[in-house]
Nucleic acid binder design. Structure first.
Lengths: 219, 219, 219, 219
DNA sequence: TATGAATGAGGGTTCATTCAT
DNA sequence: TATGAATGAACCCTCATTCAT
């Protein structure tokens, strides 16, 4: 089950092209990335639907139409943002899952990795968290659903391994537990501010302490 | 601290209107409620912004313009949905908070009450969960921010009481804990389906078990 | 030219009907008149286009739809208001024109009669003044254009008679003079308030003094 | 008749906007002016309320939505039209009022100036004439009421100066006289056609002759 | 690369009007 | 006579997108 050896067909970065035919894909990737960053910020702040292309352009100091030199559409910006985030996320997850750790250590590593990703891609995570459901229904964003499936599989497997190894309690509904864990981790993106008091690792530690040992005092 | 004898600043009924017989305010509450239910469902499914008034009307078997006989605007529908939900939520919370329970029992009761509310008002909760942040900035929806403040106060007080009484662990960041607890409870609305396998009370029990005692096996 | 013994085809008041077929025309003329008065007031205040049927109904203490028991349409209310006003106006004018007065006396009588009409039908006059131009283009309101033609003919004739009789100055452009006189009289409706300091006759006197003798001191 | 390099408190150009390059404010004033001219024409012809944005766009050979690239709203077009007209009007009036003329010459100059303005801004004057009353009630168009107040003050002062100097008759109600003079001048906009038989100066002369000396033959 | 101007589809809303009760 | 509820057309406006320059 473990080896996730690829992010598969995700073609975010095209190889440098010789022909100048479609400049949008290759030209000045620096500016592209900058614009995507701005867009992600605004999407996260206002919501994808409520964000107008013009607002993004305002933040970038250009006119709305000018964005279309860099991107095909508003939706393609969104796609690129989410793909970039998921690519990185999975490269982290895959490393963890392939490391051959025990269930408890795997869980700890996955959670820590998640908080690190929130730290790095806060905006993207917030967008993902808010729009995931609606988007996943569209063919263009099928990769979101696919990612979620893989995500669920990895988590359930880890939890079940832990129950089998008597590291996790057996009396909990694994599916429910998965949902709780999953959600709590990601909603953090809605209030987390990078550069705040807590580092992602510290938040992960607190969170793990709570999830693993509970908040009640042991008798 | 205890006696919350009213919902105070969160008024359900709009202030009396100038014109004598504005039907929108009180008359035919049956149809109104029905339409609000439909609207809430669609808002929850598609997101508020992405929902067109026409779509709501379609679901109600009428034309878009006809909705305006019952409501002032799309936004006023949203407001009424959220107010209705929060009113009921707080009437439940207040009962709990006034009951004079110990911190652990209070926490259990609050969580159970929350899941019950998700069961009753799933759509409203999902909307709230998704739009809360953007809406709270608008003056019209200031009551959302106000509610959140009260909510936070109640939870923090309970947690702190528990720490003082040595019922809850002292080594956890109370604020962080609050956020985790709060979020996990409410995101449940995004996947919960009324009439499914788990009753709200059962979900609450599982959830509380996890939060209080952790998912790790005790050594 | 003189005998204007009728307003001809103007069928405002149908003869009492035996059949109950179309109640709108005959039933309860008192209520009709009352409603027309209200409508005229609102039309005058807000402008015909800007006035909603609902606003009229509000003022009448009923619902918008209920007006349609009494009238065919908003436009038919307007028509009836204007017809009623013009009918009365012409019955006054005709009396003057048939009286065989000299040109100066005719002019004085016409002006006085006009101010009296403003006093009685202020709202209708204001509506007429404001909407005349646009309405006259519609077939339904052709009677407005027709009335204006008769009006102009009567005035020009009077002015020319006066010039011929050396009662009015010959060095003025009769057509321009007509326009000035006509307009000044009717715009008074826009500021005239019945029951104010000046009676219509007093205003007429002042106005005539100005028009006939000028405002400059004679040397 | 000295040089007036400002219109004082009636600002033509909107205050500087927050965003850097809002095109609506200043850029491409040529097209803006053209569109405003078209809009004014249509407003004058059909009435502001009865004019649809689409009709304006039709006349301009574009789609309705395209107008919003240049203007914020239909209302803002109206405002700009009226402001432009009043600005120019007052620059003319101020020149007259500061010239230190006698009361009769002042009156003559004001009237002549008014007819010139009608010649230049016929559409705007017609709109002003028809919509002034309703608009002045709105805060956005408070400048209309303000202008009217200044207008009245200037005229009353001139008339009273004339009476004091025994140039104008003392037996006339000054307020009534003002109204008559004011209205007759401006209603001319409803029938005046630029390029017609009469130049504005000629119309002014005829009008002044009538107002000052009356239409009756002197005995 | 970016601008300025426009398109075209749709979205929320208004309003005169209808009609069963 | 009047109400309550709905219709349907039209309206103002927004916005992603296009394209010549």
């Amino acid at each position: 089950m473990s080896p996730y050896d690829h992010n598969g067909p995700v073609p975010t970065k095209k190889p440098p092209q010789v022909t100048v035919a479609k400049p949008a894909a290759s030209a000045a990737p620096a500016r592209r990335r900058e614009l995507l960053g701005i867009a992600a910020e605004v999407f996260a702040e206002q919501g994808y639907n409520a964000t107008t292309v013009r607002r993004i352009a305002d933040h970038a100091g250009m006119l709305a139409g000018s964005l279309y030199y860099h991107f095909d559409s508003k939706e393609s910006m969104l796609e690129e943002i989410l793909r970039g985030f998921l690519d990185e996320l999975w490269s982290g997850y895959d490393a963890v899952l392939e490391a051959g750790l025990g269930p408890r250590e795997t869980l700890e590593a996955l959670v820590t990795e998640s908080f690190r990703e929130i730290d790095r891609h806060r905006a993207a995570v917030a967008i993902y968290q808010k729009e995931n459901r609606q988007l996943a229904a569209q063919e263009r964003f099928a990769f979101l659903a696919e990612s979620q499936r893989r995500f669920e599989k990895a988590w359930l497997a880890t939890l079940e391994r832990g129950v089998a190894a008597e590291v996790f309690r057996a009396d909990l509904d694994v599916r429910l537990t998965y949902r709780f864990v999953r959600d709590t981790v990601w909603v953090a993106a809605s209030w987390y501010r990078p550069g705040g008091r807590h580092s992602p690792e510290e938040i992960a530690r607190q969170y793990l302490s709570m999830v693993l040992d509970g908040i009640a005092v042991r008798e």
